[in-house]
Write a protein that binds this DNA or RNA. Structure first.
Lengths: 218, 218
DNA sequence: TTTTGATGGAATTTCGAAATTTCGTGATTT
DNA sequence: AAATCACGAAATTTCGAAATTCCATCAAAA
């Protein structure tokens, strides 16, 4: 495996989980020293990360970590609802038992973690695990939609969404609501009711939407 | 302006309008000679193009032009309907007179070209103009949605869609239907009826959808 | 005080070549 | 004949440095 891929994965993880400040300039030279490689290699990695929207490229001005803003969170949430609701509805139609099994497993994993998070005083050992399990659950929801394009598009949106919330979501104040909402999404999906599932996905994400213009899901 | 941007624009245009064969490997070395620059520069441009999905990157295997397939066209169309319908509905609510003016202008431009295309025997002088005007119209539809994220996401999908159809759409057999459909989208949008507009956008793109699972727009 | 302009250091971009990996061809083995 | 292997050519990846551009600082002018 080329070394570049290691750097890519390391930086992606860091960009999504509190390793960089929002709006900060990415110092390619510093990273070059940290990873002990050439400037071109870092530059390439940053271009690949910009594919996911985790850094922004500006001509002659290098790369930046996107600013955090309520508007961007609203927009990303809007798209998540649109794509996850659609992808899940398709999965319900086409997924079959195999998908239901995967979804149940993903939810069980997530649910287990969230229950422990809910009671733990020191949440730090669970943070990374939770990020992974939450991503897994939402990816699994749409995984049987049959559209690789939708999955990739959603992945980009999800990465940026997670990045926007990487600081405040570490406190897990929302966790007890989340447990209930994830359960409701699972139940609705298992019951085969696409419209209800769309609604539950919307409800789950609604706290990140700004009030003025709601996302229409019905 | 850095030279790289020229190369980027040149290749993007070529990738969207018949300059490469679907599935073809992109010969970085050939491009390096053609543009008389270094390998790294070409490599960077290709990474930037992969952000739009116009080339696919595979580790140690270079870049390829995506294969054309009915499935991919279906998926891209599905997403176009989802994103354009949503973006247009938002534009109707938030765009105001300025947006209506831009949309009318874009439609007028497109309509003028399509009328001429409909009668011309040699359509080649209009091909590039039409690609530009058609893109402009559909971009304008969603331009007042208020979500830069939605606009960028749609742009990627639109680029890939156009690339998938770059060969067959050069015959313009569909042109008389298109004239009517673009008009209907404009009329619906101007009337302020979001649901009808969604329907018309769906109808316009429906010929690219595979029959089995239709896109739900209502 | 505000604006304009020069200057030097730092960051970005581009280059050409070296190191590594892939891929096609044909020989050898089973 | 089919499969495996070795080899060389071609492509990809990485490097380190040169060329260019940006940006903060400070001086000079309005």
């Amino acid at each position: 495996m080329p070394y570049e891929t290691d750097i890519f994965d390391t930086l992606r993880h860091r960009l999504m989980t509190n390793g960089f400040e929002h709006g900060q300039k990415v110092r390619a030279e510093h990273l070059r020293q940290e990873f002990n490689c050439s400037a071109s290699t870092i530059r390439e990695v940053l271009f690949r990360l910009s594919t996911l929207g985790l850094v922004e490229f500006q001509e002659q001005r290098g790369f930046r970590v996107p600013q955090k803003s309520r508007e961007v969170i609203h927009e990303l949430t809007h798209l998540r609802v649109l794509l996850e609701a659609e992808g899940t509805a398709l999965s319900i139609r086409r997924g079959g038992v195999a998908w239901e099994a995967r979804l149940t497993a993903a939810h069980h994993h997530l649910s287990h973690l969230e229950t422990r998070l809910n009671t733990a005083t020191d949440k730090s050992p669970f943070v990374d695990l939770w990020f992974g399990a939450e991503a897994q659950f939402h990816e699994t929801l749409i995984s049987a939609c049959g559209s690789q394009t939708l999955i990739e598009t959603h992945h980009r949106v999800y990465c940026r969404f997670r990045q926007q919330l990487m600081v405040e979501d570490r406190e897990f104040d929302f966790i007890s609501n989340n447990i209930r909402q994830h359960q409701q999404i699972l139940d609705a999906a298992m019951s085969g009711d696409a419209a209800l599932t769309r609604q539950k996905i919307h409800d789950h994400l609604a706290r990140h939407l700004m009030p003025e213009d709601e996302v229409a899901v019905a």
